[in-house]
Design a protein around this nucleic acid. Structure first.
Lengths: 199, 199
DNA sequence: ATCAGTTGTTAAACTAGTTTAACCTGATTT
DNA sequence: AAATCAGGTTAAACTAGTTTAACAACTGAT
């Protein structure tokens, strides 16, 4: 069963409220500039090589961010589920061709804004600049930890820590995409799983 | 010959000026809250397990950020040279024990501020919140690219792209630290270099 | 019911990178 | 001038993870 229920923008505002406080006017100002958009399973939100025009907040559904290498292999960079932000940030802020594809693994509902809207929001609502500073800061710390863990841990331990950290995602997406995210082949992940299940 | 010449704070202000404009009063306010500190080659700016109290801007010198694993091996996370920022950001913002050590590879002069100073700066000078939002954003984009390159490229290509991207650092720091940064052993880097030099 | 597409498993041959250990060079100390 | 030390190289045995290829299980569409 696909989730096709109507989500609403409140999810975003309760999320923002965890970090900063917006006045009623500020909330309204922001709400008017958000575009809500639905995508079907399989649809692309962004294609590698295009300019990434939107920063998206996931209201419902699940997406993968990945790139295709020269021989056609796909490599998953990250997943995004409810309450995650997704974009190719390099492309979004610098207006350069995107390194990544973003594709829906389920039917999705996203809240989006453009780069010029975000710039407007930053100048009109300083609390939002703080909000995104904190969000990006957390993303950077997580990215740096991931770089270190990719050195330090074996594929087995990376898999175990992935299941531990994102049990929901581990059940929602197929194994071969998890293998790709972990930087190993699906065959090797299969071997690891067999090994774990036997003890 | 070590570089022991006196640098000054102007390097930081010309750097900030590339991203945002500060008024004279704002510059003064910031300048008064910066502490300038010299470290000798080999000295630790931060030890793994301690709380990271300072965000540091490098006026002169070169540092390594690394962690020690359970069997005593050292793994380099990043280098920092003139005009780079260095800290354990996770520890700095959350007041948690640092994952990393920061040690000087040369005599260094750093400009530092504490977390409470930074919070004060953010509220008093919105332009600085914007400045750091942009800096952190760039750091995040770079970190994500590094995650991908560690998947996509062989050790050989990672080495070539490192020399290409940071020729200055490649000449300033010993090979075995570069190997560690690239996530390979010094022996394997040596093999790669031999292979490159022969054609 | 069946056909085709998608996901997951197993196994054998292979390769990129590690480990261990010995050795070389140049710089600094004694 | 000898001794030590930090940085770098080489080579042989090894291991984590890949490749290729075949097959099994499940799904949805006709």
């Amino acid at each position: 069963m696909e989730n096709t229920s109507t989500s609403d923008k409140r999810l975003l505002f309760t999320y923002i409220d965890r970090y900063v406080t917006l006045t009623t006017e500020e909330e309204l100002f922001l709400k008017e500039r958000l575009r809500s958009r639905r995508y079907l399973k399989g649809q692309y939100v962004l294609q590698q090589g295009d300019i990434c025009h939107y920063e998206s907040f996931v209201l419902s559904g699940c997406l993968k961010v990945f790139y295709s290498d020269s021989s056609g292999g796909e490599h998953v960079v990250m997943f995004a589920v409810e309450e995650w932000w997704v974009s190719d940030m390099g492309s979004f802020v610098n207006h350069t061709p995107a390194d990544y594809n973003i594709q829906c693994l389920e039917n999705c509902e996203l809240l989006q804004f453009t780069h010029s809207t975000l710039e407007e929001l930053y100048t009109k609502i300083p609390a939002l600049e703080r909000f995104f500073r904190i969000i990006i800061q957390n993303a950077f710390v997580a990215a740096q930890k991931r770089i270190v863990n990719n050195h330090r841990l074996t594929a087995r331990d990376r898999y175990i820590s992935f299941i531990d950290q994102y049990p929901d995602i581990a059940q929602r997406v197929p194994q071969y995409l998890i293998a790709s995210y972990l930087g190993i082949t699906k065959e090797f992940l299969s071997k690891i799983r067999a090994q774990i299940n036997q003890g």
